[in-house]
């Protein structure tokens, strides 16, 4: 089995950067761990998940779709430059799996989202497997594992003084080749097994079996009034969520030129569905909160056969009023049985 010493990590990333790729890595900024373009700064080691997930890299907060210049009768339109290759180091198995869920939305079926596809195909995901679960983690309850390779190009299993790399894709193998002289051969039992023994108390409290069908039958259940009542209608849960992918398209104009951009939008904002003429199909918190959880726990499973949640725990840690997926599943379980 291959072994990459921890001390070789910066050299390896430096080489990947030297190949012209933007390298992202988790860095500690004023006590908050954030995925940032890496330029040699110290890489954070003690973190459960960075503030921003892989979504921030593959479906950026704002991206330009096209640029235009001229007058209404004489307008030149051009596409932005194609995305450069990127390497993301230090993402967790849950975030990597989340991108596969987003793949299903953006890449499956008759319409392929070109922007997403191009970014996806030029991005290498170097996941660092988890050896501990945070208090908010529950990946196991939604079919994940602290060492699962899903969605990763390379999984680095942390062991003493370094990592055991496992490359599920050729892209990952290629990234590892840049470290071929830094990697050693060692004897070690299957590191994926370690994932089974990681304690994850929160995961044990979540029972999702058969929930999708029960939710479908109880669309108008009064429990949604009670559950949503404490929601402040901010977009925190959707923006920190690695699997929420809604976006809005908008133009910014500067006299004779402008940009058409897309950026994150949230189904929890009160005017998310507001239409010209003033009609709002989801006018109340109840409508919006129900939509978010039914999408994750009912519509998505119906369309794709799996829950739209990877158990990263960001909503648990972030929601200022404790209205997060485990809490809602718990409250639903109580009323729907």
């Amino acid at each position: 089995m291959r072994f990459l010493p921890a001390t070789a990590l910066p050299r390896w990333l430096e080489r990947l950067r030297g190949d012209g790729a933007t390298v992202w890595a988790p860095v500690d900024e004023d006590g908050v761990v954030v995925l940032r373009p890496w330029e040699g700064q110290p890489i954070a080691s003690r973190y459960v998940n960075p503030l921003n997930s892989l979504k921030d890299v593959l479906l950026p907060r704002t991206e330009t779709i096209l640029e235009f210049e001229g007058r209404p009768t004489d307008l030149a339109v051009r596409e932005p430059a194609p995305p450069q290759s990127q390497v993301v180091f230090g993402t967790r198995p849950c975030d990597a799996a989340a991108m596969e869920l987003n793949d299903r939305v953006f890449l499956e079926g008759t319409f392929v989202d070109e922007g997403f596809r191009r970014r996806r195909e030029t991005t290498t995901v170097l996941t660092v497997a988890c050896t501990v679960a945070g208090p908010h983690c529950f990946c196991r309850a939604v079919g994940g594992s602290p060492t699962a390779p899903r969605g990763s190009d390379l999984v680095l299993h942390p062991v003493e003084n370094g990592y055991l790399p496992e490359a599920p894709t050729s892209r990952g193998e290629k990234a590892l080749r840049a470290a071929s002289d830094l990697v050693e051969d060692v004897e070690h039992p299957d590191p994926r097994e370690a994932g089974r023994t990681v304690a994850m108390p929160l995961a044990e409290r979540i029972a999702l079996d058969g929930l999708a069908a029960r939710l479908r039958d109880h669309f108008e259940h009064p429990c949604w009034d009670a559950i949503s009542r404490r929601c402040h209608s901010c977009g925190l849960c959707t923006f920190v969520c690695p699997t929420c992918y809604c976006f809005a398209v908008f133009d910014s104009l500067r006299v004779t030129r402008g940009r058409r951009q897309r950026g994150w939008d949230s189904c929890q904002f009160k005017d998310f569905l507001l239409m010209a003429g003033g009609h709002n199909p989801r006018p109340t918190r109840k409508h919006r909160v129900r939509q978010r959880f039914l999408h994750k726990l009912c519509y998505f499973p119906e369309a794709y056969g799996e829950y739209q949640c990877v158990g990263c725990g960001r909503c648990v840690a972030g929601c200022p009023v404790g209205l997060h997926l485990p809490a809602v599943v718990d409250e639903l379980g109580e009323v729907l049985g």
Partner: peptide, 28 residues
């Protein structure tokens, strides 16, 4: 700049604020 670059624009700060009680908000 470093602080603001992290901002996700989720508007949680506005939504929980008792002083941000305007019926419609210029930030929208």
């Amino acid at each position: 700049a470093r602080q603001f670059e992290r901002c996700l624009r989720c508007l949680a700060c506005r939504q929980v604020c008792p002083a941000c009680n305007c019926v419609s908000c210029s930030l929208d």
